[in-house]
């Protein structure tokens, strides 16, 4: 088992308020893992595939869990998920959709494209913190992810 520090959390979130609150919730819940924050879909894909500003990144390091917002600039969350699942490298990465909406179409599309989980952000911050705590517990500690494939 890797060190908790190796278990990176990828947070894909364009709203700085939500970013701050999520980070606060992680911190308040004593989740010390590295959190990589990207602010739009394109950046997220660059990070995951080692392209653009993330060219040359060590692709053997992959997030233990990805927290994906759906409404994102440039490339939206569902498209990010689709491209992720289409790539051999990221096909099996655990992705949790963390978003405001509970529209039926979002739920259907999210699971349809292979989301591992779908969590609606509650307005009440107390409830939000509780949700983040449970996510950390489950995905970072309880869940055993698929091994990261060797490149080449």
């Amino acid at each position: 088992m890797k060190d908790m520090k190796d278990k990176i959390i990828l947070l894909i979130e364009d709203n700085p308020d939500d970013e701050a609150l999520t980070l606060r919730a992680l911190e308040k819940n004593n989740i010390k893992n590295d959190v990589v924050v990207v602010h739009d879909g394109a950046e997220a894909l660059d990070y995951l595939f080692g392209t653009g500003s993330y060219a040359g990144r060590d692709l053997t390091v992959m997030p233990q869990v990805t927290l994906l917002d759906l409404k994102l600039p440039k490339v939206d969350g569902l498209e990010v998920l689709r491209r992720l699942r289409a790539n051999e490298l990221t096909r099996l990465l655990p992705v949790v959709i963390l978003t405001s909406s509970n529209e039926e179409q979002d739920l259907m599309n999210g699971y349809g494209l292979g989301a591992n989980s779908y969590v609606r952000k509650p307005i009440d911050f107390g409830q939000f913190m509780d949700a983040v705590r449970q996510l950390g517990l489950y995905w970072l500690i309880l869940n055993e992810p698929a091994p990261v494939p060797k490149r080449g």
């Binding site: 709203n15 308020d17 939500d18 609150l21 606060r24 759906l70 409404k71 978003t99 405001s100 909406s101 509970n102 529209e103 179409q105 952000k121 509650p122 307005i123 009440d124 911050f125 107390g126 939000f128």
Partner: peptide
């Protein structure tokens, strides 16, 4: 759809930072 996504985010910020 936009209401569902966008109107709630500021509320979350209001509540979140109030609590903070």
């Amino acid at each position: 759809y936009s209401v569902s996504h966008d109107l709630r985010a500021p509320l979350r910020a209001i509540d979140g930072f109030s609590l903070a």
